[in-house]
Amino acid sequence: MSQNKIVNALSYLSIIFAPFIFPFIVWLVTTDHQDMHETAKNAFLLHLIPLVLTILTIMIVSITGLTTKNSQITGIMLIILLVLVVLVDVAMFIYNLYLGIKILITD
């Protein structure tokens, strides 16, 4: 198994132990290896999606809570957005695991 293949798989599988940090470091370091560079960039962007969605959800619920003064609307919005964010987060986690394992399995 080549070193490139292991680093490419670890870029996706790092969602378990170092999300978006490991792929970012690999992306910065591997400018001369195009395959590793592109895979690390894709993994980094896939790892950022749950983080950005979570931050946006917190901002939307906070702004809604401050502007409406209606706790029922804010609570309902919070529950709906949290369910959506959790679903997307779990889907991205499973997708990253799939991509990492796929790289390790393929010849």
Results as ranks from 00 to 15, higher is better:
His33Tyr: 04
Asn42Leu: 13
Thr31His: 15
Thr30Lys: 15
Ile49Tyr: 05
Leu99Thr: 02
Phe24Asp: 05
Ala18Tyr: 07
Thr39Cys: 08
Ile76Leu: 10
Thr54Cys: 13
Thr67Ser: 09
Ile94Thr: 05
Phe17Val: 13
Pro50Arg: 08
Val83Gly: 01
Ala43His: 06
Pro19Val: 10
Leu81Gln: 09
Leu53Trp: 01
Leu46Gln: 06
Ile25Phe: 08
Met36Ile: 15
Ala18Gln: 08
Ile101Arg: 08
Ile94Arg: 04
Ile73Val: 14
Gly75Asn: 07
Thr39Gly: 04
Phe20Trp: 10
Pro50Val: 04
Ile73Ser: 07
Glu38Ser: 14
Ile79Ala: 15
Val52Glu: 07
Val61Cys: 07
Ile80Tyr: 00
Leu56Lys: 07
Leu56Glu: 04
Leu53Cys: 08
Gly100Ser: 04
Gln34Gly: 01
Ile63Glu: 08
Thr74Gln: 11
Ala40Asn: 05
Ile79Glu: 03
Thr57Asp: 13
Ile101Glu: 06
Pro50Trp: 08
Asn42His: 15
Gln34Glu: 14
Ile60Glu: 05
Ile58Trp: 14
Ile101Thr: 10
Val86Glu: 04
Asp35Arg: 11
Leu51Cys: 10
Tyr12His: 15
Ile55Lys: 00
Leu53Thr: 02
Tyr95Thr: 09
Leu51Asn: 10
Thr68Asp: 09
Leu56Met: 14
His37Tyr: 13
Phe44Val: 05
Thr74Leu: 02
His47Phe: 08
Leu45Ser: 06
Tyr98Leu: 01
Ser62Thr: 15
Ile49Thr: 10
Ile58Gly: 12
Leu51Phe: 15
Val61Ser: 07
Asp32Met: 12
His47Trp: 11
Phe93His: 02
Val83Ala: 13
Ile16Leu: 14
Val52Ile: 15
Leu99Met: 10
Thr74Ile: 03
Leu48Phe: 07
Gly100Ile: 04
Ile16Lys: 04
Thr64Asp: 07
Gly65Val: 03
Val88Ser: 00
Val29Gly: 05
Ser11Gln: 10
Ala91Gln: 00
Tyr12Ser: 03
Val88Gly: 00
